[in-house]
Design a protein around this nucleic acid. Structure first.
Lengths: 194, 194, 194, 194
DNA sequence: CATGAATGAGAGTTCATTCAT
DNA sequence: TATGAATGAACTCTCATTCAT
């Protein structure tokens, strides 16, 4: 029997610890020592599972976004009306944003200095986070809707993230139910079939 | 005659150089040596005008956002219809985003690890960037509009930034005219008086 | 088996190297690079054993003074007459002064600019170096001796250090035997029981 | 008429300011900016009067020790008995030590790294500070006194400095009268003619 | 697989000194 | 003489990475 499972377990433990540390202090201020301690392993062990601090960071982003994409894709498959869909999107993407706020921030701060291959992986992550929304727009918008689905998706995602962010900026607790209703009111009319 | 002007000039030269370097490599990867070289001054000179790298960074953010806020406030004062206003907002905020992409990403996020006083300055910058849009919404939305102006502003700003960002992410040239028309089409209906 | 011993060894090696460098150039002119090179370790290694240059310096003072205090305390316990005691004191304190001339000068003075906690440690070192002499004076001076033992100790220690220092100032080799005899002659009469 | 006097005045003002700063923070932590500000002149002006920070420091030591030497020489010329002489010495040298404690400390810390010519000047200062005491001992000790006057002087000076220092170490106010009486009691018997 | 002591390049910052005005 | 903005060498300290055990 292979110990593949055990290896995966430790990998995941490290990622969890890394999430904690990165979210707490941001990428630059996070030290590998701290991550190792939080994960309960020695510093050298980190390098058995990840090539570098940068690679660990990108891997974490990938793991979190994968999780999100899977969940949101599954939920969106079931929803019928535009209203319902916006509700699902706001709720799930909002949760993701709340949970990973600092990670998302760190991306823009730190990635510019990363090597090309990691930059591409980050690019794919960003793209991946947009995809479920784009697919949704392709499904619900009328054939002759004059705006590209990708741009509509950008509009909707931007609206969600900034709405949630406006709460977080003031350290107010986010009421996703209310945000969903508000966004339905603002965005709904522009997205409905005529 | 005082040399106040000359001092301001050099301060601005340094800020320009810093913008170049920070935008090119991100905050963490930017080295004070590089900024000094780009500004054509010695490293030590940077510290005559700014207390630290962090303070230089925040000062840069402040300078750029002030510029934006003044311009956009002036333009919005003159526009009448919702359509026109959205057009102005998209154009100016879009320009700002294109020009300061990397910096804007930094602004729209807190800067973990910075000392308290600088964090507050960043918080004020972020708040400041929202203000013109909020004021606009207070002006153009009907009395009984059921969503807070601040949240509508977040929606609109998010929509703009992400729309522009979706072009930049793919390294495509941004057509702000087109973005403006698209956003008017998507957001317009939800913002019109009933 | 623990590697406690090995760790202590390296700590001591670093202290020896630091003693060499500090004594050679004085605290301010001593560079951490030099100490590292003298100790045969990398610069970063110094910081595994000591928190800062200042802390390394104070630790060195502590280690040297501890050594001295233990030795002198043991020897003084056995001596009987005033003459004998002065002889022991001059010999041991003189040796200490010769060996640690530069350090001793530092010890006998506060270290302006150091953080509070390190200042306190230095203060304790200075106090510690006086203690054996004070205890001795308490033992050998008559009950009704009109001068405080602490001040008599200061007199004796000052006399010893300056006597030895007067040789070192001229780069003459110190003859501790002779210094002891001379000090017995000068100080003896004033310390004898009446 | 030459402006020699005015030049001397500014030189002295700078020395006074330097004394303040050096005494307050120690040599290494004292910055030329601070000295310039305290003296009420521009930084560059310091270099019109002194070649370097090191040279300024040594000049200050010289000026202070000259003052002391002149005063003590004058006073000692008049005193007759050993008791009286010790009293004068303790008072004047004690005052000097109290006033210049920090400067004296700084010497041992900083001078090791100074260039040769300044080291020699410091050496001369140290020697100069001993001279009045040595001359005194040559005068008052009997012809056949078996200890060199220079060493007796070292003993006496060490005793004075450490006695005063033992007060300062504890931040107690020094009572020079009492110290003088105590030292007369301890040192007197060994110095009297037989 | 796991460890953690050791490494050393590289960072931000300081400050004595200079020199054009 | 006097200035003070500018310099840049030199410093301490950090921390991602390695490798002998």
């Amino acid at each position: 029997m292979s110990n593949h499972g055990a290896i995966q377990d430790k990998r995941i433990e490290i990622l969890e610890a890394a999430a904690l540390i990165f979210a707490g202090r941001g990428y630059a201020a996070a030290r590998m020592d701290d991550i190792a301690e939080a994960a309960g392993v020695a510093k050298g062990t980190l390098y058995l599972y990840f090539q570098s601090k940068q690679e660990l960071f990108v891997s974490l982003l990938e793991s979190r976004s994968e999780e999100y994409v899977q969940t949101v894709t599954a939920w969106l498959a079931d929803c019928k009306t535009v209203t319902e869909c916006i509700h699902v999107l706001v709720t799930l993407r909002g949760q993701f944003f709340v949970k990973n706020q600092r990670l998302a921030e760190s991306v823009s701060h730190s990635v510019p200095g990363f090597p090309k291959d990691l930059q591409i992986r980050v690019w794919n992550i960003r793209r991946g986070l947009e995809k479920p929304t784009i697919k949704l727009m392709q499904r619900i918008l009328p054939e002759n809707y004059p705006v590209e689905p990708a741009l509509v998706a950008a509009v909707v995602n931007g609206a969600i993230d900034y709405s949630v962010g406006s709460y977080l900026l003031d350290d107010r607790r986010v009421n996703l139910e209310k945000v969903a209703r508000d966004l339905e009111f603002v965005l709904g009319p522009g997205l409905q079939e005529k």
